Simulated scan of single mutants.
Amino acid sequence: MAKPNKKGPTKTVDIYCANCKTPLFKYRKGGKGALIKCFIERIIQDHTTKPCVCPQCDKSFARETMVRGAPAYKMIGGKVTFK
């Protein structure tokens, strides 16, 4: 399968922890659907200290995985929100 486009979309979204509303990422998201995965190369700002763990409440919100040959975070349902 093809790798995701490195430059990617121009629309950015802010991703927050659903539990404590702490900002986690600023991300270039494509499409208008739900947030299922975040390609690491599309993350503009990373506010986390440990990967996939909220810095405020220490709860895990995603899992590290490979999607189409690129490293990504696969979001756990209901753990994050975005605007």
Rank of each mutant, 00 (worst) to 15 (best):
I40T: 04
T12C: 00
C38R: 02
C20D: 09
I40F: 12
P23W: 10
P51Q: 06
M75H: 04
N19I: 12
F25E: 00
R42A: 01
K6F: 12
P71G: 13
I40C: 11
F82E: 00
C20I: 08
V13W: 06
T10W: 05
K83D: 09
G77I: 02
Y27S: 00
K29I: 02
T49W: 14
P71H: 04
T10Q: 10
T48V: 10
G30V: 01
K26M: 13
K83W: 12
P9K: 04
C57R: 13
M1R: 07
G69L: 08
M66V: 15
S60R: 09
V13S: 05
A34R: 02
T12D: 00
K74E: 15
K21R: 14
C54M: 11
K79M: 12
A72N: 05
T22E: 13
R63D: 15
R42L: 08
F82V: 01
R28T: 04
S60D: 06
P51E: 05
I40R: 06
K6D: 08
K3R: 13
R42T: 01
C17Q: 01
E64K: 05
S60I: 12
C38D: 00
K26I: 15
V13H: 04
R63Q: 14
A2Y: 12
T81Y: 10
G31E: 00
G31C: 01
E41A: 11
G33Q: 06
M66Q: 15
K79W: 07
I44F: 07
Q45A: 07
K59V: 09
E64Q: 12
I43M: 06
R63G: 14
